[in-house]
């Protein structure tokens, strides 16, 4: 009985406490950089597209809202021919970002992407790509991966020896 009264008293005391609600449109909330909002595709420090169209984001997506097609430029650098996110299906779970091996796909603190027309929530690669590296400056997948692309021959990636001479029999 006493506990009930105490409870009521404590609840009543909340009349004098500050409100925690943030009056959103007038007052912008602070969102951490790791907030999971609108998805973007970033670029590597050299300005190239980071996405190598590996399909891992698409397969990680629990609502299957990412579709893409891989293609290669003449030098063998792989990129997405198209990259589409259907934000009307996206649940902003961030699994795509976790799956991305190149830090290309990232979720941002921007959540103001509402539309009256669902069709406008379909974002193509041009809508998704930003000009910078996003949350992860410095990383460039192609500097690590042992494949040859334009401007980087075999043996020029990080911690690689020069290509072996295959017609040599020297021990």
């Amino acid at each position: 009985m006493f506990s009930i009264i105490r409870t009521l008293w404590n609840v009543l005391l909340h009349s004098f406490q500050p409100r925690v609600t943030i009056q959103y449109p007038e007052e912008k909330p602070y969102l951490a950089p790791r907030y999971r909002g609108r998805i973007i595709l970033s670029r590597d420090p050299d300005g190239g597209e980071r996405c190598v169209a590996c399909y891992l984001c698409a397969v990680a997506c629990p609502v299957d809202c990412i579709a893409l097609q891989a293609t290669e430029d003449p030098t063998g650098r792989r990129y997405a021919e198209f990259f589409r996110i259907n934000f009307s299906r996206c649940i902003f779970c961030g699994l795509c970002e976790e799956a991305c091996p190149t830090y290309a796909i990232q979720l941002t603190p921007d959540f103001e992407i509402c539309e009256y027309d669902r069709q406008k929530l379909v974002y193509e690669k041009e809508d998704l790509t930003i000009s910078g590296p996003g949350k992860y400056p410095g990383y460039n997948f192609w500097r690590v991966a042992g494949v040859k692309i334009g401007g980087k021959d075999k043996g020029q990636a990080e911690r690689e020896e020069p290509p072996a001479e295959i017609h040599s029999l020297l021990p």
Partner: peptide, 16 residues
Amino acid sequence: HRYSGRTAMHANINVS
């Protein structure tokens, strides 16, 4: 069972 992109592959034509 891991087939991906079902809700996006035709979304450029029609989002439904």
